[in-house]
Design a protein around this nucleic acid. Sequence first.
DNA 1: CCGTGGGGGGTCTAG
DNA 2: CCCCCCACGG
Length: 832
Amino acid sequence: MSGFPDDIPFFDEDEPAPTPPAAQKPSGIAARAMAARTGGPDTRYLDALNPEQRLAVETTEGPVLVLAGAGTGKTRVLTTRIAHILASGRAYPSQILAVTFTNKAAREMKVRIGTLVGEAIEGMPWLGTFHSIGVKILRKHAELAGLKSSFTILDTDDQIRLIKQIIQAEGLDDKRWPPRQFAQMIDGWKNKGLAPKEIPEGDARAFANGKGRELYTAYQNRLKTLNAVDFGDLLCHPIRILRDHPDVLADYHRRFKYILVDEYQDTNTAQYMWLRLLAQRPRSTEPVNICCVGDDDQSIYGWRGAEVDNILRFEKDFPGAAVIRLERNYRSTKHILGAASHLIANNEGRLGKTLFTEHSDPDDPKVKVHAAWDSEEEARAVGEEIEALQSKGHALNDIAILVRASFQMREFEDRFVTLGLNYRVIGGPRFYERLEIRDAMAYFRIVAQAADDLAFERIVNVPKRGLGEASVRQIHDVSRMREATLLQAARDLVGTEEMKPKPRASLRTLVENIERWQSMLDRTPHTELAEMILEESGYTEMWKNDRSAEAPGRLENLKELIRSMEEYESLRGFLEHVALVMDAERHEELDAVSLMTLHSAKGLEFPTVFLPGWEEGLFPHQRALDEGGRSGLEEERRLAYVGLTRAKKNLHLWFASNRRIHGLWQSTIPSRFLDELPEAHVDVAEESNSYGGYSVGQPGRPNPYGKSRFDDQSVFSNSYATPGWQRAQKNRTDATARNWGNRSGHQVERIGYGEADSGYGAGRGSVKGRVIEGELVARSVSEKPSTFKVGDRVFHMKFGNGNVSAIEGNKLTIDFDKAGQKRVLEGFVKPA
DNA sequence: CCGTGGGGGGTCTAG
DNA sequence: CCCCCCACGG
C-alpha cells in the first residue's frame, strides 16, 4: 500500500479565479493594478532597464530569443518580463510556465519576482526546474505511464544498484560490464528521449555482447514494478504522455499562455522535445509566446547531453522570432571583459556577441597571471593573497576560487584550515548524498511508499540486526515467488518457520515497526514521525554508540534533516524536495571564501576571483579533448570564459608547473588558454615572496629540474618577457608537439585515469613553431572511415585480443577477451 | 555474520 | 592516492 493518498490535489488548486486579477484581494500585483486605476498602469519596474532589456521585456507576444551575455542582466530581464506579463493582466501566475536548470536559479527567480510584484509568488506554480515540473506533470498523469502517482525518484546511487542487480540477473559479470557505465549509457539515451526500442542498433550492441537493449528494457520494467523513476524519466515520461495523449497536451496548451526558458543553451534533446510539444500549437494561428534566454558562449554542459544547436537554430524552429542581444555588461571591468572576449573569439560556431561596458576606471587592475612551482605552492600563495586582502578590509564573501575539477579543492581546503581562514564549499559532497542522510531517507521512503524495495534493502540491516546476506536472499526469493514487494515478502516470511528464530524475530520487529509507522503517516505531524522512526529503529542509537570521529557530525546532520523537514507540509512533499534538491547547508551569514567548480559558478559573480590550475590536461581537461575533440576544446574554452566573466574587479589566473595527479607528481604545461589572452589587458604577476617558501629538492618532492625554472623570475618586472614565462611557453610548445607525436600512433592512451603515460614525460621529436590545437584535436573526431569494421578481430598491446563492437570516428569500442570492453583509439590496435 | 586487508579501478561537471 | 569490492578468517 502506498503511503501517499493518490488524491492529493497538486494540480487544480491553482486554477485561475473567475475574476480578473485587478479584482482580486488587494495584495501584490493586484494592489499595484488597483493603485494604477487612477493614472495608467504602474510600470515603474521598466525604468530600471536599458533599451535592449526593455525591448526583451515588452516583446511579450510571439517567439523571442534573448542572447544575454555574461553580466548583462539576464535574470533581471526574465523576472521583469514575468512581472510585466502579470502586472499588465496578460496572464495569471498559473498560466506562465518558466523553466530553469537548477533549483538555485528557480529559487532566485521566485525571490526576485516576489520583490517586483509583491507576495503573489505563491501563485507561480509552474516556475521550476525541468525536472521538478516534469515530476509535477508525471504525478498528475502517472497512470498514463504505468505508474502510481506515489512513485519514488531514484538518485544515481539507487539507479546504479538497481542496474547492478539487473546485470547480475542476466548472468553477466558486473566487473566486465560495469553498472556505472551502463547507467551513463541509459542517461545518454534518456537525454535524447529514447525508449529501449528506439535506441540505435550500434548503441544496443555496444554493451554486454549486444544485450544493451535487453538490459535497458529490463531496467525500465524493474522501475515500473518498483513504482519508481530515475531522473531521465522525469523528462521522458512526460514527453511520451504529451505525445500519446492529445487531450492531455491540449489541456496544457490551454493552460500555458507564456513560456519562458532560462539557460536555453543548456537544453538537451529531451528537454527540447518537451518544450516543442508544449509550445507548438498545431491547429492555431495564434503565435507561440515562448521566450528563451541564453548565451551560446556559456554552454558548458555538452558532456551531459546539452545541444548548443538548440539555441543556434532557434530562429528556424520558431519562424519570425525576435532576436534580442544584450551586450551591455554591468559586472566587470574593461580588462576582464577584454580578456574574456579575446579568449572566446577563438571559438567557431558562435552567434556572436561583444560585451562592452560604459564604466571605465583607469585604476582598474589588469587580469593577473601567476606561476607557481606546484599546486601546494599555488594554494599557499592564494591563501596569502587572500589574507592580505582580508587585512585590507576586503570581505571574504567577495572572494571566490573556481577550479576545473573538484579534486583541486582539497589543497585549498587544507591550506585554509591551517590558516584558519573561513571558507565554504559550494556544490561539494551534497548533503543528501551523505550516508546517514541516505539511510534516514530510506526509512522515510519505505514508510511513505511500501513498494520501495531499494529503500527496504538499504535499511533492512541498518543498524545491524542480524539480517545478513542469507536472510536478505530468503526475502528476495519469497518476493520473486509471490511477485510481492520485499516488505510483503518479509511479512509473509515471519509467519513461517523458514527462518531461524533469531533473524525471524528481528525481522518481525522491523516489519511491525514499519507497518506501525505507515499507519501513523496520515495522523502524525511528519517531523514527529520522522524523529520517532529514527529513534525506534535504533538508527540514532547506532550513531550514538559509534565512537568514530564522524559520528557526532552525522547525528548533527540528522538533526538538521529533521529541522529542514519543518518547512514542508508532509513527508511526501519533503521526500520529493530531497529527491530533487537539497543543496548543502548554507551559512550565508558567515564571512567566508567560496570554493567551487567552474561549472557550479555559472551565474554567480564576485569582486575577486582566483582561477587556479590553468594547465594543459587539467584545463582544458584531457578528457574533454579526448572525447570531445574540437568541440570538446571549444566547450572548455567556454568554461574558461564563464570563469573569467565571474569576476567584477580583480581576477587572478594561476598555473602550477607540477601537479599531483592520482598520487603522482607530474610536470605540467601552462594552459593554451593563457596564450589566448590579450596582452593589453593582462599582467604577468611578480611574486614577491611566493617562491621563497619552498626549497628545491624538498624531501618528498623531487625536483626534476634541479633548480626551479622560476628561481630568477623576480628579477624581471611585469611582462611576458620573464624567463619563467618564456620557458613555460617553450615547454608548452614542445610538449604539445610531443602529444601530437604520440597521438599519431605511439604509446599514449587515455582510457580513464589509469597508469597511462602522461604524455608530458621525456621529450622526443619536435614540431617547429606553434601547434594549432584545433587541428590537433580535430583528428580524434574526424569522420574518415575507419580501417576496421564491426566484428573485426584485433590486437591491442595492452589489452590483448578482442572484437570490434562499435566504431565512432577513429575511436573503436572493443570487447577484449580478457580486459572487457574498452574504448581505444584506432591507432593502437592492429588486425589480429 | 561481520570486520579486515589486499587488489583493482577510477568522479570534471545537474537534476 | 583513495575508495570500493571481495575473499577470508574469527
